[in-house]
Write a protein that binds this DNA or RNA. Sequence first.
DNA 1: ATGGTTGTATAACAA
Length: 256
Amino acid sequence: MKVATFNVNSLRARLPVVRQWLELVQPDVVGLQELKCEDDKFPYKDLEDLGYHMTVYGQKSYNGVAFLSRMEPTDVERGFHNPEMPSDARLIAATFDSVRIINSYCPNGTALGSEKFAYKLRWFEEFRKEAANLTDGGPCLWMGDINIAPTDLDVFEPEKKANAVGFQPEEKSALMAITDLGWTDLFRQQHPEEDGLYTFWEYVIPNGFKRNLGWRIDHIYANPAALPGAGKCWIDKEPRTWERPSDHTPLLLEWS
DNA sequence: ATGGTTGTATAACAA
């Protein structure tokens, strides 16, 4: 089956792009991020004719994650288990046939030294704790907008990013503390040397997409049990070229 | 050059 992750930056604003892309690519499971709507404003009726189950965890204005899937998922979980964590809608997990998929919209961090930056690090630490047991069990994929570029290959002009949120040593360490437990970055595994392969281009940089001034911050990770099922992993840049695009573009995985 | 754009609590904030 074809699995995808796509930060849509408002699903309602992105309906034409998302519909066209679903019809063109025919993915079996899609993890969406940045819905920017509450559950009761989710555009179920605008998507129902495309034949997807919709499993939603939304909130007002910000964040929000969902699955669109051909098959009905089981064992849906929303948010962290830890009740001490804020209840922002950034995390949804479900099982599709035999594979567990975690779809996350990791915090952006906003600015160095800010409360939101501290929350980002706390969020990754909590995720590390809660996901620690998942690398020992059955097949599991972790995907989404990770909001961290792991290496110099993953961002334009890395030498100028000393103060850039998403490229700080403590952010990379927070991500590595998770991936070191046994998560493989499938796209990087398949493109171990190549730079300039991005999933996100800021709106604010003039012609940033055309000039390929981007970041690879959307990832799909496989645990050890999921590795044998992982086929090709690729970035689909096409929807970023369409009218009123998201600032992100989808990352896909062939899974069997 | 601390700019630029897009989205949502249509004012200010988030990204």
